[in-house]
Write a protein that binds this DNA or RNA. Sequence first.
DNA 1: ACCTGAACACCGTTCAAGT
DNA 2: ACCTGAACACCGTTCAAGT
Lengths: 223, 223
Amino acid sequence: MIDQMTNSARTPLSRERVLLGAVALADTAGIDSLSMRKLAQDFDVVPMALYKHVAGKEDLLDGMVDVILAEIEPPAPGATWKTAARTRILSARRALLRHPWASRIIESRPAPTPAVLAYLNAMIGIFRDGGLSAGLTHHLMHTLGSRIYGFSQELFNATATPDPQALAAAATELAAHFPHVAELATTASHDGHSVVGQGCDDQYEFEFALDLILDAFERRQQP
Amino acid sequence: MIDQMTNSARTPLSRERVLLGAVALADTAGIDSLSMRKLAQDFDVVPMALYKHVAGKEDLLDGMVDVILAEIEPPAPGATWKTAARTRILSARRALLRHPWASRIIESRPAPTPAVLAYLNAMIGIFRDGGLSAGLTHHLMHTLGSRIYGFSQELFNATATPDPQALAAAATELAAHFPHVAELATTASHDGHSVVGQGCDDQYEFEFALDLILDAFERRQQP
DNA sequence: ACCTGAACACCGTTCAAGT
DNA sequence: ACCTGAACACCGTTCAAGT
C-alpha cells in the first residue's frame, strides 16, 4: 500500500502505466469496479490527471484490449498454416483466461484499434501464405468468429455456485423442466465431475470446435 | 406524443408493457440511451413506479431478452433435425436483426432465464430427437456458440462510415499497413459492393458457417 | 396500501480558477 | 504552462414521508 503510494509518487504517469494499472484493477476488483475515479485513486492522483494519458474511458478500454493482444505469442515460423493458426489461437485463449473480463471488452469495442487490425492481418496472413484463397480465408475468419480471439460465446456464463445443496436442487429443477439441458449438463463431463453448468471441459470443447473448423477448411482447400 | 400520454395514463403499467416499452426505447434511441429514468419518462411515471413491475435494471434486461426469444418462430414439425435447426436458427437471426442491440445484451446476461433455458432445451431436443448422441450434441452446441441465438461474433463491429472520401482514405491506409485485411475486405463481396468493412454479405457468411458446421456433424453422426 | 419526492452514492467529463 | 477542485449532467436504487 505504502510502496504503491511512494512508487506512484516517484515515477510519473504514462499511458502504459495507466493501461497496466487498469488491467490490474480489472483483474483484481472486476471489470464492473473499473472506473476512471477508482483508477485515479489507485495512482493517488485526481481523476482528471488520467486524461493527460488517455482520451477518456473508451480510449482506456481500447488500450486495455491492446495490452491483452500484446500477451499473445507471435506465430511460430516454419509451421503449416493449420498448426500455426491453431497454436496462435490457443495462445490467445491462454491470454484471455488470465483476464476473464477481456472477452466482454473485446466484444464491446465499436471500432478496431491498429493493434487489433495488426493481429487480424497476421492471422489472415497465416492462411493466405498457407495457400488458401482469399474467398476461403474470408469464410474461415467468419466461421472462427470470436475463436480468433481465443474465446467462444458461452451459452450460459459461468456462475459460481459453490453451495452443493443449492446445486442439487437446481439440478432437480433443471431435470424437471428442461430435461435436454439437464442431460447435456450431466453426460458432457470429460473429467468425471458431472455438476450442472460445470460438468463441461471448456478447453476440450474449444479445441474440438477449433479442430473441426480447421479440418473442414483443409478439406475444402484441395478438392 | 399526446396519444402516448393519454394511453399510458389510461392503461396501467404491467411487466409486459414495461418490457415492450424498454425494447421499443432501445430500438429507437439505442441501448445506451436505455435507463430506468428515461424509460419511466416514456411512460410519464416516476422512476420508482417501474420497480413495481421489474426488480431492477438487471431484471429489465433479462425480460428484454425474453421478449426477443418470444419472437423466434417455433420449430417446424416433421423436418429432419438438420433443417429444423437451420430454420429455427435463421428465424432467431431475423429476430436479432430487428433489434441490433440484442446480441450485446444476450452476451452480457450473467445467468440464463427460464425462457433462455427453454429455448436451449428445445434446440437440444431437435438434435437428440434426430438421433444425435448426447456427446455429439454437446459438441455441436459449443461449436454453434452464439450462432444458436442467430449471431456470430463480429470481427469488427459495424461502424457506419457513409463519407466516401473518408472511406477511400481509410482503404488506402488499410492497404498500406494491413494488406491482408485490405485484400479480404475487397475480395469478399458477394453483391458487387467492395468497400472497406461493408464489402461483406453477413447473411451469406452466417449461412456458410452454419451449413459447414451442420454438415460436419451430420457426417460424424453416421460413421 | 399505495405512490412518490428527495436523497444517497456513485458515474464520466467540462471548465474555470488557482499556481 | 500545468494542475486541480468544484461543478455539471447524468446513473440505479433506498427510504422515509405523504396521501
